[in-house]
Design a binder for these strands. Structure first.
Lengths: 348, 348
DNA sequence: CTGTTAGCGCATTCAA
DNA sequence: TTGAATGCGCTAACAG
């Protein structure tokens, strides 16, 4: 059976046509400085006539024992990964370091729980960077089990994996204090607690019910902040959104604003959520910050444009750090790499 | 020299421990249904004790002749790729199909022109999808030269590559007509013409000076539209932005609005650009659409929020179609897959 | 600077 | 259902 795809030429064929040994041909592509100009020309000419562009990557990987690629595991459905500006900033940082190190970047989308583990294990990569994972996600263990370096962004902590991220609890406590001081009825607009992504408004939820480490840590920090300002966490309304989406945030905030016990200080977990909240507050005929104090998170363009106080951190740098660690073992500590940018939304 | 990284177990070692042949172990992972339950159990138990998670991907690729991955070439610096919502929507579509087909998605960032071609050629992928490429970009030829399937999004056309995208010229003509009819002094806010990304305001540039196919086609369409409304293209101001960025668009538009021959009908190449233009127009004390008619492109959230007329197309679907073509050969025609969404920004 | 040898780990082919 | 033999294409290690 003749395949219509022409079989690619091999290095051995190129060498034969060039009248040199296979190794000379190999060196021509892999370590050109070790080959005389004359041989190199002969080899390249032969390669050109045979349509040989580069040594077969699979054979090269097998022989060298390295894949030449870093795997990025998007721990959840793609919609949430590519739609989220923070996630894309993170990936841009990873990509930057990969390019700089001459490595490819392999996206390993998590799709079907029954096959994800196998796909992670079988990936042709030299290390893994994991984004947005739930506690106990099987993909984390699958990555660790391969024996290759694993970096997890913002938890969960796991033996055998390096964690990169800021101290979300401390940052949440700091910004929570700031916003809660601007009112008397604090509330929180939250990311989903679990991968089930249930949306709801609840009073004083147990932060430990959140299986997303980022959500949990920030809830813990907001609870700390409530304590700091003398409010009982049990009285604090937490509106949980199913996604990091301004529209949903707007709807949830609308609900909060129409309650008898209307909050007047709203801490949110992202600038997208804050942006939606801002619009809902104005739409309700209320004003930020006089009627409702408001904060976001990430110091994104939306926060700047709308004058929303936010937590600044660089996802791009964190992505780069994750990649650098996985590829070269270089450590970087981001624990304290955040600060609060105060804007009009929390002005007294 | 002992590496601290433990050598991974091989299939042969697993087989030996399980007391079966290597092939039985191989089948257990590759085609489990062909192995008796008893053997399978023995093999899996042995694998577990040896920490063997999956057959070596490089060896498997070499033997099978397939990499199991699709390459996505981001034709330009990463900043522009991951910062652009359209690009990320496109990648989400590619990723979706890769996940569905059980393939990995390898991002091949273009970084250093001297090594890009080699990286493209040497990538362990079964096909290529190219995004945002300039005419004559060497990476296109490099991808084609590998003999693997190549799909280019929105041009440039090249022998051996399949092109996916809408008819940008026709769409530009249609929306250009609409916006230009809303005034008497038309102007255009454009993407960069070439990879040099020079920013400038020029009157009636030759569309063929643009080496980015998307830019060129849209300029051609806007020129058609100018003809349609009886305006000499040579009199049409084109403000060229260096990136697809609202801030830069705002500054460029501010410049346009302060001219004696102030435009009153502005066609832009994206909703980001339109969004920046909108703010500049309002900041100049003018009003959309009464003082200046305005259009965007892509029907993104920004256009919806600000009521900007736009060209709707699905980048996600186009990304999915590109991946599907490269992976399975399935064709899809997007030529006419666009429509105009009219909003207040072009209301008479 | 160039060549020889050897084998990376696996799955196809064929036989039992 | 299982197994033996073979070689995918390449490059490390070592001569010469």
């Amino acid at each position: 059976m003749n395949s219509h795809v022409p079989r690619r030429a091999t290095l051995a064929q190129v060498a034969e046509l060039a009248g040199v040994s296979t190794m000379t041909a190999s060196y021509t592509f892999g370590r050109p400085e070790r080959v005389s100009a004359a041989s190199r020309e002969k080899v390249l000419a032969a390669a050109r006539t045979l349509g040989f562009t580069a040594p077969d990557p699979a054979a090269r990987s097998l022989r060298r024992g390295r894949a030449g690629a870093l795997g990025v595991v998007l721990g959840e459905h793609l919609t949430y990964a590519f739609d989220d500006p923070q996630a894309t900033a993170f990936m841009a940082g990873v990509a930057e370091v990969c390019a700089e190190q001459g490595q490819a970047m392999t996206i390993l989308p998590v799709a079907d729980a029954t096959t994800d583990v196998a796909r992670i294990s079988a990936a042709a990569v030299d290390g893994y960077v994991l984004w947005t994972t739930e506690d106990g996600a099987p993909v984390v263990d699958a990555a660790i089990a391969t024996g290759r370096p694993v970096v997890v962004h913002s938890g969960p902590a796991a033996a055998g994996a390096h964690v990169v991220g800021i101290d979300n609890r401390a940052a949440a406590r700091a910004i929570g204090r700031l916003v809660f001081a601007g009112g008397t009825v604090p509330a929180v607009l939250s990311f989903p607690l679990t991968a089930a992504r249930a949306a709801a408004v609840v009073a004083g939820p147990d932060p430990d019910d959140a299986t997303f480490p980022v959500t949990r840590e920030r809830l813990l920090g907001f609870r700390d902040a409530a304590d700091d300002v003398g409010t009982d966490w049990a009285d604090v309304l937490v509106a949980v959104c199913s996604t990091n989406d301004a529209r949903e945030a707007r709807a949830m905030t609308q609900e909060l604003m129409s309650r008898a016990d209307r909050p007047d200080a709203l801490a949110t977990m992202s600038d997208e959520l804050a942006s939606g909240a801002f619009r809902a507050i104005e739409a309700a005929g209320l004003h930020v910050p006089t009627d409702v104090a408001l904060t976001g998170w990430d110091d994104a363009e939306a926060a700047r444009a709308q004058g929303i106080t936010s937590v600044a951190q660089s996802m791009r740098e964190q992505g780069a750090a994750c990649a650098r660690y996985a590829l070269t073992g270089t450590r970087a500590d981001f624990t304290d790499q955040w600060h609060i940018v105060e804007r009009a939304s929390t002005a007294r």
